[in-house]
Amino acid sequence: MKTSYSSTIPASEITPKTLFEQRRRFIQMATGVSAALLANPLLANEKLTASASSAYGLTDELTPLKDITRYNNFYEFGTDKESPAKRASSLITRPWTISVEGEVEKPQTFDIDQLLKLAPIEERIYRLRCVEAWSMVVPWLGYPLAELIKRVQPTSAAHYVEFISLHDPEQMPGQRSPVLQWPYKEGLRIDEAMHPLTLLTFGLYGELLPKQNGAPVRMVIPWKYGFKSAKSIVKIRFVEQQPVSSWMQAGPNEYGFYANVNPAVDHPRWSQAKERRIGDFLKRPTLPFNGYADQVASLYNGMDLTKDF
């Protein structure tokens, strides 16, 4: 390799100022575009549009897409909120199947494309309340889980539904740490699972789900803390006994099976009375059942929600 240490530059080598400035603008533009591509993996995503109108509108201001896709609790890709956006590209979302099994008449394995066409996709603007006392407003795309449940015909012994997420440390590097017991597991009572608000979700903001938001298919249960809504689901199991979720295993006195949003029942270490909506400065009061009490409070009649937290 020839190396020159000469400090004299021939005049022919000097770039004219106008050309230099042009180049500079070009580079700025190019780096700007590539930065936008990197920051927004959605650009690579397919569109997903609602084919049915929804009765579940909301007047709350939407959380910007940028914040929804860069601030995620998805421990499969690391425990801090920025990690999923940085690391979830290793997740392979096609091909993808979900096996539906257990106490059902018609156990079967659905391909993701089959599942996308199973029922009309609706846009549902839901509040999302994290157990860490922050919240967002997300325009999800999906259909009620009840649509799927009807097709597999649960038996009379199907009292609960268990959701199991993908377990593959190759694709999900966060699973190399034993911070939770993998695979991630969550569950609902059958009547909660059948509730029209309970959404089998494939997209948000008019696109298929970004990987860091639980692609290609996740649950959204808007009246419960966010961790109840399992992401990247590969198995749905109908069972007789109440399943044990990953967070119940991790901290049984901190995370219960129900995990309904409840400002009156504090987390053992912090208050749940208020929340910070992402983008807001002042905290706002948290609403019982995250503002969905009219629709869901009757599911819990006669229960002591301080015990069944």
């Binding site: 914040d67 860069r70 601030y71 992402i278």
Partner: peptide, 10 residues
Amino acid sequence: QDDLGANPIE
């Protein structure tokens, strides 16, 4: 520069 993420206070 608005570069403290989605939850700057945190």
